[in-house]
Amino acid sequence: MSDAAHSPSFLQEEIRRYHHFITLALWLAAITGVEIVLIFLPVPMAIILTVLCLLSAIKFFAVIMWFMHLIYDHRLLFWLFVTGLALAFATFTALLSLFAVERVDTKWFS
């Protein structure tokens, strides 16, 4: 039970992480708040959209790196997950661009 995992340096590390988690939680809440305000601002859509994508990517990676310990764990885990993520992103970007609006019978949205 109580083995090397409970050594003082390990505990110190855990406490350091604990503070990271709290800081991160505050940031995540703040970013979500910014997102909600953003969508009502009279700024060109392209800009808002870019910022929104960026912000959710930041939130996404913050959670996987800190909450999910990828920054502390073996690098292999990071690359395994990123492989799945990148493949999904590439495949479905390709799929979305294969569907063109001009080719669809428009009576469905009139």
Binding site: F21, I22, L24, T32, F67
Partner: peptide, 16 residues
């Protein structure tokens, strides 16, 4: 998001 935060704390508690 906050549940995720608490989950991170729960894991941290288990490690300690």
């Amino acid at each position: 998001l906050m549940s995720s935060f608490l989950m991170a704390l729960a894991v941290s508690a288990m490690h300690k």
